[in-house]
Design a protein around this nucleic acid. Structure first.
Length: 108
DNA sequence: GCAATGACTGGTA
DNA sequence: TTACCAGCCATTG
């Protein structure tokens, strides 16, 4: 796994770049980003976020079922509330059908 | 080179 | 709906 203290690889920088492009109120899954880049897989994206995700809107990158990253659920929920991200009623998960960002829809 | 690990995913019960 | 399982793949020791 990549370590936070090591320098981000080119792949890591591409991942972080995509995350920064995700508009507020929208999210992408780890698998979505991997597919969008056309390299690596969900695990690799997760490894990048774990190591260097602190410098980007990490709460906009979640699991395919809408669950925020483990250990950061509360923080993520605070951001969702601030950005009006659609949440599934009665849960702490994002409504992926509504909030999923294709990567092609521009914020406007 | 090999075995273990991890902010994952989709299928099945 | 939640829980468990096999597959996935680069990084780490």
């Amino acid at each position: 796994m990549a370590r936070p203290d090591s320098h981000p690889s080119d792949y890591a920088e591409r991942v972080l770049e995509v995350v920064e492009r995700v508009p507020p109120g929208r999210v992408m899954s780890y698998g979505d980003i991997a597919e969008y880049l056309g390299e690596g897989g969900p695990r690799q994206v997760g490894a990048v976020m774990s190591a260097w995700g602190g410098g980007v809107p990490w709460w906009r990158v979640i699991r395919a079922d809408g669950s925020p990253p483990p250990g950061h659920e509360v923080r993520a929920l605070e951001h969702y509330a601030a950005e009006a991200t659609p949440l599934r009623p009665g849960t702490s998960r994002v409504d992926m059908r509504a909030a999923r960002w294709d990567g092609t829809e521009l914020p406007g």
